[in-house]
Design a protein around this nucleic acid. Structure first.
Length: 835
DNA sequence: GCTTAGGGTTCG
């Protein structure tokens, strides 16, 4: 999720001195010392357990998953990967956690698909075994002895059409060289030099579907742009359709590898070279980051994702995304792109095919219907009268007849540059056509021959956002003929597509309908405004609106949970709440920080104010009996009532720490370092209280283990007191969402942040700690914005918005909005039991 | 063997 002011995002990127770094990720065949030492013996993954003597052992496996490189404080890194044993008859996978420089080097030098041999590891319990179903233990690689030996993947089979770029390079070049180019550099489109071969990202501003050239190949042409604001043409020639970019529309984002920069008529042009590859992405912010490619192996890392997100944000700010037009909005003489489903098709003659399509909306104009012989129709030959009113008859000509031949009824299509042709009522339509009713403005839909203006047809995959939206609209259309359906008028269908009616009467009608499910708690004496009125006003005001929720980000709600530092105003990504997925840092990473800290305990003398002791971790079973851990107790808290309130715990795993946190009021995880106690890295919680975990700001904290000041008369210690003593600036859990609101006059993006807790009626801290609170928010969002529901089904909300001056990504002033003083009041029926 | 295209609305 991207937002603009008032919040600043922290980008967490460490720096390391690469020249000073010893190489411990060895490329086999790259030089001396790159071979796995002969005295090491390989151990099968299935035999790994905590009793494995790891000192002279190696584990070999293919890297089937490589996680992002996550930076910790002190310029250190952590990275998680999964390796899979290839040779064993029953394939076994195990998590590998790398820490420090090794993690950074691994991230740079190892790709998914590589075979690695690891040595110098230790074995720990995998905290994610129940979730990922992988090996109950994991391999921890850190310190000077840990080493990774890498072999490039085997060369691809000669008949494999989806040969990856990495594979080609690995087989064509020495390993060392291939790895140097493994993290590709991308050129800005403003910096291209003729004659060079480059990798680029760009937003598509023009494209043609692949078409047959006069030569031997299919040809695609693109025009792309980026923040340097150059529009660069790109031509792809290849006989194979799968080599071509899969562009669905203007605004898509493409990543091109190995394109040659040439000059044509004093303009820079890009052309594919023999190592060319392309990925395409949806261009809308918030869409899944699913690359479209027919290559089965490609490399996409965090940096790539970040680049795509940046381009999406930039493209949105430049208005580069062009929406398609629903049938109900098609006007005579329009050229438009139509996203639709094919119901039936029929050949008319050798140069013309009829496609019968619908998109769930009804054309506002009387349509020309094409009469065909039922025997030549592919698909149903007749539909109910109600459905028939929603069907558009599209005639496609010439080169598009061949594309139409490949289509099957049921396919989801995008038809580019479709023409709505007004048929004059004075000149009678051709004999093969009849109008639905007698009328003046009959519309015919034609896809003319040629490829100008992207003209063509493309099948969209079922999982694409456009098709999901299309299905959502279609599902809202009643299935049966009936009175209710015949009552359904065009304005309702327009509303389903969220195309605002223009007339004030329509506005008034819309605003007055619907059940309202929220209330304002503010005392502002202002009247309700429409969104279009709000947008016309300058920042600085407070507005009351009645709106529906059109969409929201992040869709994965746990990502709305952030950690906020009130001192430096940074918003940090949250650690994953138990049981949910999160990117950085997740529970596995937090767990490995504990594991790392619990290894090789150095002797450590307790500070004078503390007493050392032992605590027994409750054992789960005979197989894993409880063990004793050393703890420090503050002497001040040894008196009768408070002695169980604060303990400093060293050498415990995350799992053990959580178990102890259930029995003690306040648990501070510590480790010994250089003979004295320190806190763990601040990616780990500095304090656990029952299920609640407290985190500190990496920027503002100066952590040290110190005795909390006992406040005279205070009955209990709390997070604040402990954080102060430890020099930790505690982070606050916050909820942050971006919502797209709509009313009959338009849409408006607003933030829900400061007002989020009162909006949802829940504390962010509780959302972080318990599943019920998370489920509650999820249900509430589903109620406000039901998946598959029509706009008409969405409840209305009375909201109070504050408008303020923020900045966009380039620092330009932009009016931002936040929801405040508003609470959703759900009807009783939606208070469903989470169980 | 190393081109092909190099956008810019229509027969119907």
């Amino acid at each position: 999720m991207r937002i603009t002011s008032p919040c600043q995002f922290e980008t967490k990127r460490g720096k390391t001195n690469r020249d000073a770094m010893p190489r411990r990720v060895m490329l086999q065949g790259a030089g001396p010392g790159d071979k796995v030492p002969a005295h090491l013996t390989s151990v099968p993954v299935s035999l790994i357990g905590t009793d494995t003597d790891c000192s002279d052992k190696t584990v070999k496996g293919k890297v089937v998953r490589k996680g992002p490189l996550v930076s910790l404080a002190s310029h250190s890194f952590i990275l998680k990967a999964v390796i899979q044993e290839e040779d064993s008859s029953q394939s076994a996978s195990i998590n590998v956690v790398l820490i420090g420089e090794l993690a950074e080097e691994f991230s740079r030098a190892v790709n998914q698909g590589d075979v690695v041999v690891v040595s110098g590891f230790s074995v720990g319990r995998s905290p994610t075994v129940h979730k990922d179903g992988l090996h109950p233990f994991n391999l921890l690689l850190s310190g000077d002895t840990a080493c990774v030996y890498v072999s490039p993947p085997p060369p691809p089979a000669p008949d494999d059409p989806s040969t990856s770029m990495a594979n080609q390079r690995s087989s064509a070049l020495p390993a060392q060289v291939s790895r140097m180019t493994e993290a590709p550099k991308y050129s800005r489109l403003g910096d291209l030099k003729a004659g060079s071969v480059v990798n680029v990202y760009g937003v598509v501003v023009f494209f043609k579907q692949p078409f047959m050239s006069r030569g031997t190949d299919l040809c695609s042409t693109l025009k792309i742009t980026d923040q340097s604001d150059q529009k660069i043409a790109c031509t792809v020639f290849s006989k194979k359709l799968e080599d071509h970019p899969q562009i669905f529309g203007v605004g898509d984002i493409v990543r091109l590898h190995n394109v040659k920069v040439t000059d044509f008529k004093n303009s820079v042009t890009l052309m594919n070279t023999f190592r060319f590859s392309v990925l395409a992405f949806d261009g809308a912010e918030g869409d899944p980051l699913e690359p479209r490619t027919s290559s089965r192996s490609f490399h996409l890392d965090q940096e790539d994702r970040r680049t795509v997100e940046e381009l999406r944000t930039w493209a949105a700010s430049q208005g580069l995304l062009l929406p398609t037009t629903p049938l109900c909005a098609a006007q005579p003489k329009d050229y438009f792109d139509l996203t639709c489903q094919l119901l039936a098709k029929a050949p008319m003659d050798t140069t013309c095919t009829l496609l019968r399509v619908w998109d769930g909306t009804r054309c506002a104009h009387t349509q020309l219907k094409v009469i065909v012989e039922p025997s030549v129709v592919d698909g149903p030959t007749s539909f109910s009268a109600a459905r028939e009113r929603l069907i558009a008859d599209v005639l496609v000509y010439d080169n598009h007849v061949e594309s139409a031949r490949q289509l099957k009824p049921g396919d989801f299509l995008r038809i580019y540059n479709l023409r709505a042709i007004p048929m004059s009522s004075k000149a009678p339509p051709p004999a093969s056509c009849r109008s639905e009713e007698g009328g003046r403005d009959h519309l015919g839909f034609h896809l003319h021959g040629g490829t100008a203006f992207s003209r063509g047809i493309r099948v969209l995959p079922e999982n694409s956002p456009a098709v999901r939206e299309l299905k959502r609209v279609m599902e809202a259309v009643p299935q049966e003929d009936g009175d209710d359906f015949s009552e359904m008028n065009d304005s309702l269908l327009l509303e389903v597509w969220s195309t605002p009616p223009q007339s004030p009467e329509a506005e008034a009608m819309e605003v007055s309908t619907g059940v309202c499910v929220s209330e304002r708690s503010c005392a502002h004496d202002v009247g309700p405004l429409s969104l279009s009125e709000v947008k016309r006003l300058h920042p600085g005001g407070v507005h009351h609106v009645r709106v529906q929720l059109r969409s929201y980000e992040p869709v994965r709600l746990h990502q709305a949970l952030k950690l906020y530092c009130s001192k430096c105003s940074s918003i940090w990504y949250t650690p994953r709440p138990p049981g949910l997925r999160q990117d950085v840092p997740d529970d596995e990473l937090v767990a490995s920080l504990f594991s790392e800290a619990s290894k090789d305990p150095e002797p450590c003398c307790p500070p004078p104010w503390a007493l050392s002791g032992q605590v027994l971790v409750p054992g789960e079973s005979v197989a894993s009996p409880g063990r004793s851990l050393s703890v420090l107790l503050s002497t001040d808290f040894l008196c009768e009532d408070t002695k169980r309130e604060l303990i400093f715990l060293a050498g415990a795993t995350l799992e053990e720490t959580c178990q102890l946190a259930a029995g003690y009021q306040h648990v501070v995880p510590v480790r010994s370092s250089g003979g004295h106690m320190t806190l763990l890295d601040l990616s780990a919680p500095f304090l656990l209280r029952g299920r609640k975990r407290s985190y500190g700001c990496k920027r503002c904290s100066e952590a040290a283990v110190r005795e909390p000041a006992f406040v005279e008369g205070a009955e209990r210690i709390d997070e604040k007191l402990i954080a102060e003593a430890l020099g930790v600036e505690p982070l606050q859990f916050v909820l942050l969402m971006k919502m797209k609101l709509q009313d009959a006059t338009g849409v408006l993006d607003v933030f829900l942040w400061r007002g989020a807790e009162s909006f949802f009626g829940v504390a962010a801290e509780d959302v972080a700690a318990n599943q019920e609170a998370q489920d509650g928010i999820r249900q509430l969002m589903a109620f406000l914005c039901p998946a598959g529901g029509s706009t008409a089904q969405r409840p209305w909300m009375d909201l109070c918005l504050t408008a303020y001056q923020g900045e966009d990504d380039e620092g330009r002033p932009q009016t931002c909005y936040q929801i405040h003083h508003s609470t959703v009041t759900r009807p009783a029926s939606t208070h469903s039991n989470p169980a």
